[in-house]
Design a protein around this nucleic acid. Structure first.
Lengths: 242, 242
DNA sequence: CGAACAGTTGAGGCGCGTCAAACTTGGTGG
DNA sequence: CCACCAAGTTTGACGCGCCTCAACTGTTCG
């Protein structure tokens, strides 16, 4: 059996029993390859499957009638796409792959054994969902009250923090596969203004860019600028012991 | 025993077994009164208790160093404040009462029996959390891509939809206990511009105002303006049967 | 009656959007 | 290995939506 992304991710928070691992591994039994920009699911379609991201970046977004677009979330390897839709019979948002990706589809009902058999795993899944909601709150704060400059600092730190969970070399730079239009639609800006502002951030020597490779030169100063605190801890003290 | 808000809310989605009701009722055993504007918990304080809202409106918000403020969520009777912090050992946001309120504090560990004993209730709690994240996504879309006019239409419809779950008379108007500064901080605007825009919305005969009583005259036109679709259904088909 | 707070209105300014054109980059095929 | 094209990025000129500051009005409650 190939390495399970979910087990890798959840295992960072709690020790997983062998039974837990088996349940999780079942969610990644089948896998499917997607091209860059390929649509995974469109708004209005029935939500039958959820997906574990095995590799690549995935996003969910919403498009208004006049074409305005808002990117809602970024999903990275180990994330489940889209737990937020699991309770809906029909999708509220579009989902597409930002990079070539491998996703593991599993039927919604695949969650049921987790809920039924492992209170501990359930608490963990619950906590991670709640944590993801926490990062949505951060983005609401950013979009609602930050200048473009602050928003971009925030986004770069957020991506870096997320990547540093699995990659140890973010200090030497990381690939940002998002176009400036994507970034704009994540942060409520326009591609033009993202370009201008990124250039300013680089001129201020907070970052360096080479193609889509971004190096954050002054993480501490950047953190002050957008009052960024990366807190994705999970308090497991109250978890059931099974 | 007095009426439980939680049971009332959750009972709208699934039939609750007697055991479920007992577990939920325990979360509302003690209650505490709060004044308007009273702080329930400040950023950085340890998160020991969660709260069931019994009456009143509660909000969580974040304040930047220079005073900028962003309201993050509104909690109504039957909601749990703040599940999103349950997994944190220390609070990330301030919580305060917008109106006089009665909250029922219970220790975080009070969730544990739910996870351990009732997979069905757990799935429901999970779904509601996910649904709340869904409304955060709606707000991200609103703040990120809507004009002030659209944002206000969206907020009024959102509040109305939420109130209509417990009150049948929203068509004849409802009280909006938020100040215009609160509304501004919810939507990423300023109180001045909220005032101007509310006046425009009223002049366009979409709403009528008398003090803080708001009547939505043309809900359908308003829904078109901000592409509002109130979907807070919960697909219970995959829930464990206990 | 007056203080404190919420809402309204006006004047002026700025941050970001829009439109458009040039430039850069990476992939493709001859 | 270069020519070419499409996609993405940068830059400039200009405009507008929302912000800022400030004065005034209305309302509530001691």
């Amino acid at each position: 059996m190939s390495e399970s992304c979910l087990i890798a991710k959840l295992g960072r928070y709690v020790d997983l029993a062998e039974a837990d691992r088996r349940v999780l591994a079942r969610l990644e039994e089948s896998e499917r390859e997607y091209r860059k920009d390929q649509i995974v699911r469109r708004t209005g379609q029935p939500v039958e499957d959820l997906f574990v991201v095995k590799s690549g970046w995935v996003t969910s977004f919403s498009i208004l009638e006049d074409g305005r677009r808002q990117l809602l979330r970024l999903f990275y390897p180990g994330d489940i796409v889209d737990l937020a839709e699991a309770t809906m019979s029909h999708a509220q948002h579009d989902i597409k792959c930002i990079t070539p990706a491998v996703l593991c589809p599993f039927p919604k009902a695949g969650l049921e054994p987790i809920f039924r058999r492992s209170p501990r795993l359930t608490a963990l899944l619950f906590s991670m969902t709640v944590n993801e909601a926490g990062s949505l709150l951060d983005r609401i704060r950013a979009i609602g009250r930050f200048s473009a400059y602050e928003r971009l600092c925030y986004l770069l730190l957020e991506v870096r923090a997320r990547l540093s969970m699995t990659v140890s070399t973010v200090d030497e730079g990381f690939r940002l596969p998002l176009t400036q239009s994507d970034i704009a639609d994540l942060l409520g800006l326009t591609n033009v203004y993202v370009s201008r502002t990124m250039t300013r951030i680089e001129r201020d020597r907070l970052i360096r860019r080479q193609g889509n490779l971004v190096t954050i030169l002054e993480p501490d100063r950047m953190r002050e600028i957008c009052e960024f605190r990366h807190i994705h801890e999970i308090d497991t003290s109250w978890f059931p012991q099974d």
